[in-house]
Amino acid sequence: MHELSVAQNIIEIVTDFAKKNHAKRVMEVVLDIGAVSGVIPDNLEFAWEVSAKNTIAENALIKINYIEAKAVCLDCKKEFNLDDIYSICEYCLSTRYDIIQGKELKVKSIIIE
């Protein structure tokens, strides 16, 4: 489960920012997770529980901004929401498109004290 690596990376980033800001603890972590990022929020939340133990972010509340996927059709140039990574253009049914949103994997902000 690669979400463990992902959670580990988040902890490293969060710990680093917390220390630089002289935090005693981290209360909340806000993440952007794209719908086609390859990370499953439920798995990540589970992995977080395992990984955050004994870190400054233990017990921190995780907030996930789940970012839906959007694509631009290469044939009709229109923008549409991707329900699935393998869906087709809703206007012209083309399968050729570029994903313009939904691959995000990012730590947005933390709340510390």
């Binding site: 939340e45 017990n59 907030k63 901004n65 789940y66 970012i67 839906e68």
Partner: peptide, 18 residues
């Protein structure tokens, strides 16, 4: 990232740890 953060949907998976 200049990209599209303004368009995101927030279904915050509020995760209630004890």
């Amino acid at each position: 990232d200049k990209e599209h953060h303004d368009h995101k949907h927030n279904h915050d998976h509020d995760h209630h740890h004890e």
